[in-house]
Simulated assay, not measured.
Amino acid sequence: MRDLLNDLEAGHFLSDPDPVRRAQIQMRQPLPKRFYKAATVAETPEGHSVQLDGKPIRTPGRAQLLLPTGAAAALVAGEFEAQKDTIDPVTMPVLRLANTAIDGVASDMQAVLEDVMRFSSSDMLCYRADSPDALVSRQAEAWDPVLDWAHATLGARFFLAEGVMHVEQPREAIAAVGLWLRQREEPFRLSAIHLMTTLTGSALIALATEARAIDPDTAWTAAHVDEDWTIEHWGEDAEASLRRALRRRDFDAAVALARSVDATA
């Protein structure tokens, strides 16, 4: 299941899984012309359909693109409306995530749930630097509130370790994460949580963001404490900066989709 999710989330049906390489390839290859005048949302008995000139869209797996709320469908329709003379799939992260939910996650939500639980068993927030003091303090400032939230809200208490040596987490903590996820067992929500988890390297950051315990900017900053520390001391190249910007765009799309699932249809 993780391989399928990675393929779908990273753009298996696009030109390349790496966002920078994908952008470079798209620049070299001619993009399809925009063939429709308007992207709209239509409410049907099965869900909210995204339509191009009145014709429903299908996923790469040939399923009809149906979303659970009008707000969610509007996000996808907005991406189609934002296309100019050509259609650039790179600029449509919500569509890609919706395809993931329908073609991949809906058929085996348990596997996705377990994958997020596996991330939590070796969550990035539990592995701390032992020096320098400034980095230790920065990690604590960004990560401790998320761990405190997990303890207070999920009932999950995680152990911390210095360095990269694996630390066994309590079974009760992982079970608490699983229980929390079961309350969110819906394809589009789980797809968003899974993508946020893989983009940040932390299931706990993803869960806290989805629960609105932290805002997206705080979450993104927390996920990049170590990377930002390295950049401050060694600099950043242009390609790495572009890759991070594209990941942030996908992260924001996941947040938007997760929140739209809660919106009134």
Rank of each mutant, 00 (worst) to 15 (best):
A140S: 14
Q83W: 07
K84M: 05
H48D: 00
R28P: 00
S191V: 12
Q64I: 08
A222W: 07
A38Y: 02
A134H: 03
D115F: 08
V20G: 01
A129G: 04
P19L: 03
G61A: 15
H166A: 13
D3A: 14
R21W: 01
D148F: 05
P170V: 08
M109A: 12
E168R: 11
L125F: 07
P93L: 01
A38Q: 12
R243K: 15
P19M: 05
T264M: 05
G163N: 02
G54V: 07
G155T: 12
S49V: 05
H166G: 03
R248P: 01
T86A: 06
W234V: 07
M92S: 06
R249F: 01
R249T: 12
R243I: 01
Q64F: 04
T230Q: 12
G155E: 14
S49T: 10
V177G: 03
G104R: 09
V41E: 06
E239Q: 14
L5R: 00
W234K: 09
D237E: 10
A111P: 11
P145N: 11
E46V: 02
A256D: 00
S120D: 13
L242P: 06
K55G: 00
M117C: 15
T221K: 07
D115Y: 10
G78P: 13
R21M: 12
G163P: 09
G201D: 02
L190V: 11
T230K: 13
A98T: 10
V261D: 00
I193N: 07
T230N: 09
P170H: 05
D130V: 12
A142H: 13
R128C: 03
E9N: 03
L52F: 13
D85W: 12
V41N: 03
K37W: 02
R182K: 15
P45I: 11
K37C: 02
A245W: 04
D144F: 04
V164I: 08
G201W: 05
V116R: 00
L75C: 08
V167R: 05
A213Y: 09
T86M: 01
R62W: 08
D103E: 05
H151S: 15
